[in-house]
Amino acid sequence: MSSGSGFADLLRDAALRVTRPRIAVLEAVHLHPHADTETLFTAVRTDLPDVSRQAVYDVLNALTAVGLVRRIQPSGSVARYESRVGDNHHHVVCRSCGVIADIDCAVGEAPCLTPSDAEGRLDGYVLDEAEVIYWGLCPDCSTSITSGSRP
């Protein structure tokens, strides 16, 4: 998705009012997968120099609430946002530099993992998503370590 009108259509389809900050934030999330709020704020300010930090936070919350963006927060990391939603994919995080990449679902369809209860219920919960985070070293950090330098 790369056009303002496409983002406007997404907002309308989600029953959200179309505003310049909403379009700008949605575009920033699409252009910067797994970005933190500071990165997104900086990207939005490029097109909308007067937008406030609070406005960006509010838009991210609204977009997350309607499922247009997904908020992830790996352990020890700040919240990050992505536009890849609805497919129950997972993530791999580099322990050294913190880069995050998508990993397709490990097994089957959402919630992708089967709990010990064969019906997919756990104490009355109806499960619809499983979140798996793989940890390791990205190719760049792995190469740095094997070549003797620190990442």
Rank of each mutant, 00 (worst) to 15 (best):
M1W: 05
S2C: 08
G4Q: 07
G4V: 05
G6E: 09
F7W: 15
L10G: 10
D13Q: 14
D13I: 11
A15M: 15
L16W: 05
R17C: 10
V18T: 03
V18W: 00
V18G: 03
T19Q: 03
R20Y: 05
P21A: 00
R22A: 11
R22V: 02
R22D: 04
I23Q: 05
A28C: 03
H30D: 15
H32G: 15
H34R: 12
H34I: 12
A35E: 11
D36H: 10
D36T: 14
E38A: 10
F41I: 06
A43I: 05
V44S: 00
R45Q: 07
T46P: 08
D47F: 03
P49L: 00
D50W: 01
R53S: 04
Q54D: 12
Y57G: 09
V59T: 07
N61H: 14
A62I: 08
A65Y: 11
A65R: 09
G67R: 07
R70G: 15
R71N: 12
I72K: 08
Q73Y: 05
P74S: 06
P74M: 01
G76K: 02
V78P: 13
V78Q: 13
S83W: 06
V85P: 02
H89M: 10
H91I: 10
V92D: 12
V93F: 02
R95A: 14
I100M: 04
A101D: 15
D102Q: 10
I103K: 10
I103F: 04
D104H: 09
C105Y: 13
A106C: 12
V107F: 13
G108C: 05
G108R: 04
E109C: 12
A110T: 04
P111Y: 03
C112Q: 12
C112W: 06
T114Q: 14
T114V: 14
A118K: 05
R121Y: 14
L122D: 12
D123H: 15
G124N: 09
Y125M: 11
Y125N: 15
Y125H: 13
V126K: 11
E129K: 15
A130Q: 11
E131D: 13
I133F: 08
I133S: 13
Y134K: 12
G136T: 03
L137F: 02
P139H: 05
P139N: 06
S144Q: 10
S144A: 09
S144G: 06
S144Y: 02
I145A: 08
G148Q: 01
R150T: 04
R150M: 01
P151R: 01
